[in-house]
Computed example of a mutant assay.
Amino acid sequence: MTTTSAENTRPTPVTVLGLGPMGRAIASAFLDARHPVTVWNRTPGRAGDLPGRGAAEAGSVHDAVLAGQVIIVCLLDYDAVRATLEHAPADWANRRLINLTSGEPAQARRMSQSAAARGIDYLDGAILTPTPAMGTPAAAVLLSGARDVYESVQGTMAAVGAAPLYLGDDPGRASAYEIALLDVFATSVSGIVHAFALASAEGIEPERFAAFATGIGGLLPELITRFAQQLQSGRFPGDRSTIASAASGIAHVISTAAGHGIDVGVLAAAKSITDQAIADGCGPDGLARLATVLHKTGRV
């Protein structure tokens, strides 16, 4: 995209396709940064206060795309993105498409290939913060894809908050980070609610249990950092805890939970991994070793 220096000083016209809570937050952030904003949503009536603040509502995807130079799509899934873009104009000259829809790394790579076949400059991305953070320094957005495309939108995308972090030319990399982080969140929430159920079954009041459970949570930042260092070095000392001791502890939890009729499926899966590690001779190793066992057994 070639522009004069005068044009470079003008706010870039932005189009936002998809007006769920995150789409509205993104559009709001661009309005706050004084960008011309056009919005579109498949179901009318989702724009909220955006039109009153200056956003233009497009009647079609075609018109919405023509109105912007940076086109941001934030929909339910990649199927919805694909179906929406079928109605976009064929000519994407001087436009960039940034897909902030959650999905899988393989889907991001296929979408990038499809965009390239249509002559669309494309970046895939992930949003790691909730809607209230958009437009603030606390916002965290990851982008991946062609570097020249990233550089052309870097200034514009600063409107969402902190400068988006560029992760390289693999269009699936941002999604890969998001999926792995969702893994942390989903399995953590599963463990937390299971622990509350088990504590309740043993007559422990939720608030009293929470006082101790938050202490466990406080151990995780250091543990995560230590695991990363051990996985990087390939050394897994069992000087703090071992896989064998963890397996014993999980067995006690499973037995107690099952005695109360509480589902133990997640715990049984965790136990099967520790059992495999012990069978492989890794019982004396530290817990970070389990990540390599997961790869070996094809459970990821």
Rank of each mutant, 00 (worst) to 15 (best):
H87K: 09
H87R: 04
A88K: 10
A88F: 13
P89H: 08
P89S: 07
A90V: 02
D91Q: 03
W92A: 02
W92R: 06
A93C: 04
A93G: 11
N94E: 09
N94K: 08
R95W: 00
R96G: 02
R96S: 10
L97T: 03
L97W: 01
L97H: 00
I98L: 06
N99A: 06
T101F: 08
G103P: 09
G103F: 06
R109S: 12
R110C: 02
S112E: 01
S112D: 02
S114H: 02
A115G: 08
A115M: 14
A117K: 04
R118M: 01
G119M: 09
I120F: 03
Y122R: 04
L123C: 07
D124P: 05
G125I: 12
A126E: 00
I127C: 11
L128K: 14
L128R: 11
T129E: 09
T131L: 07
A133G: 05
G135D: 10
G135L: 07
T136D: 08
A138I: 08
A138D: 04
A139D: 01
A140N: 05
V141K: 03
L142R: 00
L142K: 01
A146D: 10
R147D: 08
R147A: 12
V149Y: 01
Y150D: 12
E151A: 03
E151V: 07
S152C: 00
S152N: 02
Q154F: 02
Q154Y: 08
G155R: 08
T156W: 03
T156R: 00
T156N: 01
T156K: 11
M157P: 06
A158E: 04
V160C: 07
V160M: 06
G161L: 00
A162R: 05
P164W: 03
L165N: 09
Y166V: 02
G168V: 07
D169G: 06
D169M: 05
D169V: 13
D169Y: 00
D169W: 09
G172Y: 00
G172K: 02
R173W: 04
R173M: 09
A174C: 08
S175W: 06
S175T: 07
A176G: 10
Y177Q: 09
Y177C: 10
Y177M: 02
E178Q: 08
L181A: 14
D183R: 14
F185H: 14
A186D: 15
S188A: 15
S188N: 15
S188G: 15
G191C: 14
G191I: 13
V193T: 15
V193Q: 13
V193G: 05
H194R: 13
H194L: 13
A195I: 12
F196N: 10
A197F: 11
A199I: 08
S200G: 14
E202N: 15
G203C: 10
E205N: 14
E205K: 15
P206W: 11
E207M: 12
R208Q: 13
R208M: 13
F209R: 06
F209N: 12
A210Y: 12
A211G: 14
A211L: 12
F212V: 14
F212I: 14
F212N: 12
A213S: 13
T214P: 07
G215R: 12
